[in-house]
């Protein structure tokens, strides 16, 4: 007997499936992972392993318990674990990283019905959870390479609370304190190029995000250079690059239309800069992306493309 299978759109069959996309993201993450291992050595290795183990094991066991198809083969849990590790501080206790992985998949993804149904990027959601559960562990930073036990501040923290400008070269190469994967612009940019080239992500969100951050911080710098940092600093420092390339472009939680993606990127930029310049925290990338993801259904509704032939007459 023939079975009628009903699927959700898109119905076009192409080589571009979840597995392909996730594999692409893993490849794009390789330089970032290398950089984190170089700068934070065994600490980075442990955190990455714990976060990945937490997310992959959680996905496997939840799908097993609920008698669903086991989807660990599509690499999405692996990507979530890797991304989570990249946004955690290197000195975090390993069980917290593991718990973050469990939370990312359990509360961030599977509880909504699995991949494709989640409202928020699981990795960022887990970081937000860890941030509010263990605020001290999530805001203690160590120096890269030397791995001094002495805690230090991130470039954004230094800029905000001590008004110290970190040299651009350190920001570019990543020789700064911060989350595992956020430091090195040099390591993130090849990933961006690769993802764009393989058409895994759309240029609109990162572009809108970057332009907004640059314009906003540029304007603030022109008005009060003694108080604020130049735009190049804001683009290179903190989690902006990592967030704009790997988080804000999450295909599940970002808007689907071109116009919607511009709105999404601009919104991320505005919230990020508002938090960075006037908020209580030095960094706002995580909350800006999460807030805009909450708006994604609305944006999708506003930015609906005009049907051919029904638009305004020229």
């Amino acid at each position: 007997m023939k079975k009628l299978t009903i699927n959700v759109s898109p119905h076009i069959v192409s080589a571009m499936d979840t597995r392909y996309m996730m594999k692409g993201v893993v490849k794009a993450l390789i330089p970032v992972l290398m950089a984190s291992l170089w700068f934070f050595r065994w600490q980075a290795f442990g955190v990455i392993l714990a976060a990945v183990a937490g997310s992959v094991l959680t996905e496997y066991s939840l799908q097993k318990i609920r008698n669903r198809r086991i989807c660990t083969g599509d690499y999405s849990a692996l990507v979530t674990g890797l991304l989570l590790a990249m946004v955690l501080p290197p000195s975090i206790p390993l069980w917290m990283a593991f718990l973050g992985g469990v939370f990312a998949i359990g509360m961030g993804k599977e509880i909504f019905g699995g991949l494709g149904f989640n409202i928020f990027n699981p990795a960022l959601l887990a970081r937000a959870f860890l941030m509010s559960a263990f605020p001290i562990a999530l805001t203690s930073w160590i120096r890269p390479v030397t791995l001094d036990a002495v805690t230090t501040a991130t470039p954004l923290g230094l800029a905000k609370f001590n008004h110290v400008l970190t040299p651009y070269a350190s920001l570019f190469f990543g020789n700064v304190a911060g989350s595992l994967g956020e430091g090195s612009a040099l390591a993130i940019l090849p990933g961006l190029v690769y993802l764009l080239y393989r058409k895994i992500i759309d240029y609109r969100i990162p572009a809108a995000y970057a332009v907004t951050v640059a314009v906003f911080s540029g304007a603030a710098y022109l008005i009060a250079p003694e108080k604020f940092m130049p735009p190049l600093f804001h683009v290179l420092a903190g989690g902006f690059l990592l967030g704009a390339v790997f988080m804000a472009t999450d295909p599940v939680t970002s808007p689907v239309t071109k116009k919607g993606r511009w709105i999404f990127g601009i919104g991320c930029g505005l919230i990020t800069m508002t938090i960075r310049l006037w908020g209580g925290l030095p960094e706002g990338v995580m909350y800006s992306i999460l807030l805009m993801e909450a708006c994604t259904p609305l944006i999708n509704r506003i930015a609906r493309p005009v049907r051919y032939g029904t638009g305004k007459e020229r």
């Binding site: 206790p93 917290m96 959870f129 509010s132 559960a133 263990f134 605020p135 562990a137």
Partner: peptide
């Protein structure tokens, strides 16, 4: 380590 989030 207390999970601060739980009492928030």
């Amino acid at each position: 380590t207390e999970w601060v989030v739980m009492i928030l």
